[in-house]
Design a protein around this nucleic acid. Sequence first.
DNA 1: AATGAATGAGAGTTCATTCAT
DNA 2: TATGAATGAACTCTCATTCAT
Lengths: 209, 209, 209, 209
Amino acid sequence: MIYNDKQLQIIGTAERLFANKGFDGTSVRDIADEAGVNIAMISYYFGSKEKLMEALFSKRSSDINLQVETLLHNEEIAPLQKMESLVDSYIDKVMQKQQFFKIMICEQVINKNPVIISLIHDLKKKNTEAINKLIKDGQQKGAFKKNIDVLLLINTLIGSITQMMLTSDYYKEYNGLQDIPEDQFFEQVKEKMSKHVKFLFKALLTYEV
Amino acid sequence: MIYNDKQLQIIGTAERLFANKGFDGTSVRDIADEAGVNIAMISYYFGSKEKLMEALFSKRSSDINLQVETLLHNEEIAPLQKMESLVDSYIDKVMQKQQFFKIMICEQVINKNPVIISLIHDLKKKNTEAINKLIKDGQQKGAFKKNIDVLLLINTLIGSITQMMLTSDYYKEYNGLQDIPEDQFFEQVKEKMSKHVKFLFKALLTYEV
Amino acid sequence: MIYNDKQLQIIGTAERLFANKGFDGTSVRDIADEAGVNIAMISYYFGSKEKLMEALFSKRSSDINLQVETLLHNEEIAPLQKMESLVDSYIDKVMQKQQFFKIMICEQVINKNPVIISLIHDLKKKNTEAINKLIKDGQQKGAFKKNIDVLLLINTLIGSITQMMLTSDYYKEYNGLQDIPEDQFFEQVKEKMSKHVKFLFKALLTYEV
Amino acid sequence: MIYNDKQLQIIGTAERLFANKGFDGTSVRDIADEAGVNIAMISYYFGSKEKLMEALFSKRSSDINLQVETLLHNEEIAPLQKMESLVDSYIDKVMQKQQFFKIMICEQVINKNPVIISLIHDLKKKNTEAINKLIKDGQQKGAFKKNIDVLLLINTLIGSITQMMLTSDYYKEYNGLQDIPEDQFFEQVKEKMSKHVKFLFKALLTYEV
DNA sequence: AATGAATGAGAGTTCATTCAT
DNA sequence: TATGAATGAACTCTCATTCAT
């Protein structure tokens, strides 16, 4: 699906508003006003508010295809390093696309729109498969232990990152970082999260119970 | 604050609907209908839809005071065991009060109502302090390593559990558990999560990098 | 009709609120709250909000029976002086019972409640008759001219006073009296109005065209 | 501000209903129904019921700019005649726009909406200034006495006319005019009022006390 | 292709009143 | 006698969507 400039502008505005006010808390008037387009354009271009959400979701989902392929076939990189590289990739993705992930979280909770549910399901499936390949690869090479529950691994990965995202205000306050610039804070958090999750992954992938 | 039966019924219904359809996706008419009360009762008892949310949040928050005190002062229990006991307690809490936690997640994303924000903040503060005590205690006794980031620890704890909650449908499908009874599934998940998080905690608390 | 203390309190509060916010702009809850009584008491004591208005109107109307009788039969007082005395009496009445007159003005405009309309009608009739007597008396004694239109006379009397009441804020500002105490302002206005209306009455009653 | 036909229709209907039932006694449904438009149109066109009132008030206010200018600069007309011409102009205005004046009276009593208050204030200011010019002119030419209180003059003018408006039913009954056609009654009242107020003005402007 | 005008449906809230106690 | 609890009805306003142009 290819969108013109106005459609992309609408999608971008909708993403921001859905992320900050929720789907039901955002009116098409809000979106139209902030996007600087006529109200009727949303229905005209996307059919309905709901279909706009689906378009936005579909678009952003397709942007999040992990570049796991190159990693997988590069035999020179050690399995754990591959996985660590993947972890950084995830952290980057979530931090860069916070708004989309916020929307995704709420949609998972509310669980109403079957199209969205299906898209999320596909996303999860791809993630699971990609990481499963890495795990299998590592296990074959003897770098990873047996009996790794990939879903628990992913849960901890995604859960830790999104939880940080949800509690960043509290994190800032607790660490006295209220006044540092946002981008600087981002870098700091990413650094911390990276070390933290890599440590967890190393444990989950290599330490025997 | 003490509520009568009808108020509790309204709160309970509101909790379920807010969790499943979101705050803005739930109308007071929905709540009134499902609770079997007159629509005017919501304003009559709580003042407004927003204040009903606050009442519900306030009530459930006060219910989630962790019984960490008894753990803390029992000198016979080893620090790691104390922490593991706490982990189980958290998992129980979240699994039992899934609806409330779903609401809390969305409220953190949307971040609109200052009263709710404040209540969530308080909840986090209490959690942080309680776990910090346990960590300090364990460090003094030499059971835990130095340089433990308590917020990252909690993020991983809460994040892993809530992520499991959000993805339980996918988890079921992936593990072919679609057809087992809900309570049985719960037990299985709790068991898994317990082992998983305890393993993570042991690593975070005791393994040097 | 005799009212107990609580009923009188309700009537007093209702009068103030009806005067300041209008009948339809005042809720029975407002009245009950400000009067410090239970909401149900208004219906209980008066039957309805409308009947409360009628009770209030009826009560205040009966309070406004002019003491014209003594004037009429005092043969020692000259007709013009009698009339001037009556003018002062009216000015006093209106200024003292401003709230009631405000209500009466609005009720005349809205013209909805037949009971109120009837009470206002009676009030006007009594006024007309009383002043007519004075006029006839003055004419018989040769003090007043013939062909006096009593209704125009009364209109100018009442109209001038109530108009002053309605525009007192503007009058204050125009004359730089914003900061003087309210009672002092009242006295000043009454003095001015008295002279002004007496002058008009003298003209209307004695000057030939 | 320019309004289209539907907006003017709404304003016209609102004026009639506000005048007859008061602002709070008129629902937007009433207005929409009687104007034959969809209920949502009121908010759509004017923003809110309150803003509709302001629009109506603003529109009618701007219509009431007295044509005093031509009078002022015509040196051939004697001051008293100028003033009498102005009196007739006022009487015409109020009688023609009775509904608006009824609304204005109630708004002055209730005194709630600051926009309306401000518009009324402006109207009064313009009136005062216009009449003040005429008075000064007449005084310079020796036609009017000194020490004329312009506000009392206006109060009596406006007060007498509006009072007549409020009591026209009683006036009809008293004079046995219940059955004559409305327009004929209007003419009769205007004629009477004109003579009456001109007489008052002549006294106020020329007779020494 | 694009949009201003318009609308039925439904939102949250307040209303005057009733009723069991 | 007096009232807290409760309610159906009505309130104003916003909603997503449609339609003629």
